[in-house]
Design a protein around this nucleic acid. Sequence first.
DNA 1: GCATGATCATGC
DNA 2: GCATGATCATGC
Length: 471
Amino acid sequence: MNYDYDKTDKWSILEYSKKLLGKTLEEAVGKGVINPVHGKGQLGQLVEMYFFGIENNNRQEADFPEAGLELKVTPLKELKDRTLAIKERLVCTMIDFTEDQKIPFERSHIYLKCAFMLIPFYLHKEGVPVYQLKFIYDVLWQIPEKDLLIMKQDYEKIVAKIRAGKAHEISEGDTTYLGACRKGQKGDADVYYTLLDGSKAEIPAPKRAFSLKPQYMRTILEFAKKTGGQGTYNTSALVHGYGPHLIRENDLKKKSFETILLERFEPFYGTPYQEILDLIGKEGSKAKSKYYLVANEILTKGETLGKDVLKSEEFQKSGIVIKTIRLTKSGRPAEAMSFENINYFDILQEDDWYESRLYDIFTQRFLFIVFQEDEDGNTLLKKAFFWTMPAKDLDDAVLYWSNIKSAVKDNHIAPEYFYRESDHKKFHVRPKGKNASDLTANPNGGFVKKYCYWFNHDYVRAIVDNAELSD
DNA sequence: GCATGATCATGC
DNA sequence: GCATGATCATGC
């Protein structure tokens, strides 16, 4: 094979890489070229070796060091409606708990490697050798300055936990764009690490890697789709192409992402719902989600963003989930908290908790907006805070997930087989449908009611109480 | 007061 | 027509 590109020039590498588009690796390099022994490896390594002619190495530097470009071969999956979606987070580089805490973001491996990435997207199919999977899009992505500001804050948050000897408490929900995901083989022992003062951390932590969160990857995929997969990058298009902005780049230089958003709620603390509407000059809604809608308005500073803050650039890229909590006079949540419906087909396919849908839902980053009813029947905005599920609760969530999985497998899709709220196990399962006759297909045949994931009242209360304490 | 099953307005 | 972000209605 003739490796016809200039290894010092990103644009040349991009042009060359487009030869992969619409083909499998085997088709691109010629049938029979790929050594079947190597064929068991990762597609990324095979592309490096056979398509680019680069020897594999384990150095923590970019794949094309002279061009400052990292190659990230990335899988897509096909949804039921045939659209292509991100299959998983993009794993960038392993976290070295001992060493990384000494390095500022600007000199970190993650920054030096991933500031410029060449991302060929391919369509994953179960059971097909990786070199027979087809490349669909090809993008050269430079992480925009504004995103780097947020990633720097993310990096510092992760590193701060390591420095405090709390690497075992790191969660993907801690951060906005850059995540610290679990990475390792099943059964890997937790690792010990050394703190800055030379002492050993008391509690070892599971191996983790820096990654770009699935939601962030989704926006790169959207960009790929928009440009027809004929990948190129354009920073201003990236910054302006994703809907309205919630935050100015300059503000991020002074304050954290969280602080900026939370400060928008503070002026309304203690203010009744109706008065908030008057202040921001909006009409109320009859929807059950009216408090959620008003929270959106506050977050967007009453600007005409459309109704949904989730359309803003930062929320698209971060995947932060806004949830409202309404407390009664006594301080108990008026309702338990519901999540999406259980996909009975998908959960049966899930073998690994860390790759399950529920894990993704529960490790999301939440922005909770708390309202409370007063003596006069008004509902006042009480406070807003960010939250992510602590590791110890995720340990309970595994059991919840297993229970649901086996109930579905045994064709026991009914409340008596699921966690009930009266079991007091933090989570439960309850119906969520249009009405009682709103059914969905049962993997075991026929149709069943729709059920969804819930947090118990008591669990929601504990979250709110905890947030009060940390003030 | 609480748990449980049922259901609603909205946006796309 | 369906997913989303929820609240309503009922019985103990």
